[in-house]
Design a protein around this nucleic acid. Structure first.
Lengths: 336, 336
DNA sequence: TTGTAGGCGTTATCAG
DNA sequence: CTGATAACGCCTACAA
């Protein structure tokens, strides 16, 4: 490995000058000629700075951590993608940890924050609130992604309420009046807000809200399946189902099929998040596309900003934007 | 941040002793009493070593890089999961980079290898062979995961041939005799070996191989759709389709439906890789489960071994194990 | 505009 | 068994 010293020797200058050129320290003046000489030496020796030495000196690693529940979740894949892009753009590296990782101690993230990374994105609810608050002791910034907890302002979230409204509106526009909602776990902000959006849209359109049409699930396929079975047992079942996410929607569709019905002939189904395989399902799934990529990107932007400004707090941010992606799983009752 | 020095002061020993305790250097003897005194001090001050300083001194970052094509690919999610677990077990951190990342320069990985990481897992074919060979100049080890190229022995791959055989055998066992295969891109080792497995199993069972039943795809849903349409146009279409992966299978099923046929009533479909949503499809998809997790785990094991042994080469490894997961998308022709 | 010197927090090699 | 010392590669006042 070539070092800064060797570059300096080849360029016939003192190491510190090389360092200044490297760091593009604009306040300092460097003769154009020496600058080019140094750059030539850098290229000739194919030099790149040792990041450990830099970190040691500057006390910054230019790495940020990210905690996600599971790599096998396409929602988080999109968030990661946005986060990775923005991090790369700012010269940062992203260290992603899934909560499924074996041997994840309780103080894992505070240790990580202390010894390796400059900041942390928390995009999972598997870390409990006490542990999150204890991260404050590390004096390094963190950002909650797609979730909120009390007394923490540093969050970046989506407009899930709007997502819920859009989904519900689509079904209403198609002529449905008996619309069920299979929610996510109602202790999560996302599920709650989608539910609120559902209620608001019903009210806006003067459609009575009926408790029997609401089933709480756990955001899983199995949960969606069970919830749908309960809806099918009703005396007057709904004609359309708004599923809180795509896994729930898949479970619901499975239950519908298993009970001898068809989608969308007998039931229309819509889900939140336009994951990559939504169009490949049979029937293809109508979804509401949420700006997950942007959320990841913005979260990193906020975090890097906090790092460079040495601020531990910033006002929470909600990412606007939610788009209906109509496909085959929903159908109109109007032109019959 | 507390440092080793402060710990030393509190424990009334010289810093170097603390360092020895920290590194569990068994060759050196340390009085039991001082050891406990030091450990107490460590706990009291909540000390954890500065990894930058360590890296600088030892020239090891305890981080390994991993290049994947895309986070939105459940196959790689499983590989990452295995890699992450094993890395954590050995005290390493995993830095995952997708090739979809913006601003990924051609020398990205060699730079990364030079300045930050101790080794690299290459699980993508987006890096061309020249660049891979040029990584040798960094004198740090790398491992090809799920792929092979000429003149590189350091690979960890699956027994894709066995996967292809299992899939084909399943269809034959169900009584099918006209079995099509929608391959992946045949310049990839995985696609080629699945194809070979298909041919071998046909031969084993004395079923004639017919070229018209083979369609090459690009491992995508669209590719699967188009390939299936061609198969449907045949004078005597197959009764079963072995799809090289799940995305292809989904595309094929979509084409079948769009042409007014049913799965499995009219066509049986099987795909490789038991991704998390296979059971949620309608009909649920019969698959061959491949040991992706193990592949990730073994690849990291090999890499870490190469790092600690300071070897740049090791013999390639093939991970055994492939399991049929029968579901609704394949049906027997025998009991009719 | 460039050179000098000190130190970031560790570890490794000595000597005691 | 423990202490002293130098060095890893870089950055940053400060001096020239």
């Amino acid at each position: 490995m070539t070092t800064l010293k060797e570059v300096a020797k080849l360029a016939n200058v003192h190491p510190s000058v090389v360092s200044r050129v490297l760091n593009k320290d604009n306040t300092l003046n460097i003769k154009e000629e020496t600058r080019t000489r140094i750059n030539e030496a850098i290229n000739e020796l194919n030099y790149s700075p040792n990041s450990a030495a830099r970190s040691l000196k500057t006390n910054q690693s230019r790495m940020i951590g990210m905690a996600i529940p599971d790599f096998n979740n396409p929602v988080y894949s999109s968030i990661i993608h946005g986060a990775e892009d923005h991090a790369a753009m700012e010269g940062y590296h992203l260290l992603v940890y899934s909560m499924k990782q074996k041997g994840l101690g309780k103080d894992f993230f505070s240790k990580l924050l202390k010894e390796r990374i400059d900041g942390l994105l928390i995009a999972t609810s598997d870390i409990n609130n006490k542990h999150i608050l204890s991260l404050n002791e590390t004096k390094k910034p963190f950002v909650l992604v797609n979730r909120m907890i009390q007394d923490v302002e540093n969050y970046v979230i989506l407009d899930d309420e709007r997502g819920g409204k859009l989904a519900t509106k689509h079904l209403i526009d198609l002529g449905h009046r008996h619309i069920a909602h299979i929610t996510g776990p109602l202790y999560t902000g996302t599920a709650l807000k989608r539910f609120q959006g559902y209620r608001e849209m019903l009210q806006e359109k003067n459609i009575p809200f009926e408790v029997k049409y609401v089933q709480e699930s756990d955001y899983t396929m199995e949960g969606g399946y069970q919830s749908m079975e309960k809806l099918l047992e009703l005396d007057s079942p709904p004609t359309a189902i708004f599923a809180a996410n795509v896994m729930v929607a898949m479970g619901a569709i499975k239950a519908i099929h298993d009970n001898g019905f068809q989608v969308p002939a007998d039931f229309s189904v819509i889900g939140i998040h336009d994951v990559f395989f939504a169009s490949g399902l049979s029937p293809s799934l109508t979804t509401v596309d949420m700006p997950l990529y942007e959320m990841g990107s913005r979260a990193v932007a906020q975090l890097i900003n906090a790092i460079s400004e040495r601020k531990l707090k910033f006002p929470g941010e909600t990412i606007d934007g939610a788009n209906l992606i109509p496909r085959e799983s929903t159908r109109s009752l109007l032109d019959e």
